[in-house]
Design a protein around this nucleic acid. Structure first.
Lengths: 189, 189
DNA sequence: TCAAAATCTTGAACCAGATCAAGAAATAGA
DNA sequence: TCTATTTCTTGATCTGGTTCAAGATTTTGA
């Protein structure tokens, strides 16, 4: 299981066998069944999650009591509530398994120790963050520039695998509109 | 001028005098007058910009021809089009001086060389990106959860200095609504 | 296998905010 | 200082998407 993370890292930096075993000492493996929560709003548990296999989602509860999707993560993606990680606030978000998932957990303190021991991983995590931040800049352009229908079509062509795996109401929320509207959009096709 | 960057870095990692001079060899200083562009959509110029003094904004042109604000940056903030930096696409965004600004420029290739020579800066840039990404996660919560009026009030209390410095229509666009609506909100107060 | 839970659909009424237009006020440059 | 440009205001009208509700369909777990 840890191998998928090692492979992922090695696309960016090379690791010796010793470094790989060192790494694996800091990472915890865990499986989560569908609907199980990895993180709940308000917790102080700060960690990074790497999806080996499955699908996770991050969301929060809006003032009106409904869920707002923030992000999905599937195989070989990292997901984390960086607001807790960076500032020392309690978690702003929920992270939940959308389907049964195999996950690697790197707690914040484990990450800090690991980076002391293996500073070359700083580069890996920088690259990961850069990619994530770039994606979030792009997402803003879609959120601001596209109509609901265009958002749906764009997402559909870009990530067809998701549309199968994820309930429609989560997708609608991720795209920033109501589940009912998504249903109507699909009816038009 | 470079000292404000060095100070900023030293809040995260310590630099020897030699390291400081090394750093300064990779960074270019430049001033931009109001309305001048640092980056134009479509350019291949990939760089990170550090605002020593002044105010920059990043925006793009929507399909309907109007501007959409993406981000502001004032003193001691980095700003960059990470979509160009990370993937190798031409720039998605415009970066422009809102007022006369003193800026430090670190081109992508300079950054790469610098990080070879001074790997401990990986940590600095990772932290910067982590903070930026955390902020963008928070921004999503405001975008999705608040009404126009609530967004304005929240921004106002969080960044009062901005509201003075930046034209209202830019702020409205940043918050995700029309300039006319912002004008009406202010009239209510 | 079958009942309970979760998800999706559809209609009708509604609304937050957009758009268009045109004048007022503020700012900047020569 | 004075004019051109930029920015802001306000009214009138319009609309993309929301909300509420209730039934239909699909999925799940014991």
């Amino acid at each position: 299981m840890i191998n998928s993370l090692i492979d992922h890292i090695q696309k960016i930096i090379a690791l010796t066998t010793e470094e790989q075993t060192l790494l694996s000492r800091y990472v915890k493996q865990q499986e989560f069944s569908k609907k199980e929560h990895l993180l709940t709003q308000g917790q102080k548990k700060t960690a990074l999650y790497f999806v080996v296999q499955g699908c996770l989602r991050m969301y929060f509860i809006k003032d009106n009591g409904t869920e707002q999707m923030v992000q999905f993560a599937i195989d070989n993606w990292w997901i984390a509530d960086y607001t807790t990680l960076d500032q020392h606030k309690p978690a702003q978000f929920y992270i939940q398994a959308v389907e049964h998932s195999k996950v690697l957990i790197l707690t914040q303190s484990a990450q800090e120790e690991l980076l002391e021991k293996l500073p070359k991983l700083e580069r890996y995590f920088r690259k990961i963050l850069q990619r994530a931040y770039a994606a979030s800049q792009m997402r803003l352009t879609y959120l601001f520039d596209l109509s609901a229908e265009e958002k749906y079509n764009h997402f559909n062509s870009r990530f067809p695998e998701f549309v199968q795996r994820v309930p429609q109401y989560m997708l609608a929320s991720y795209l920033g509109f109501s589940a009912e509207l998504l249903s109507r959009l699909r009816a038009k096709e």
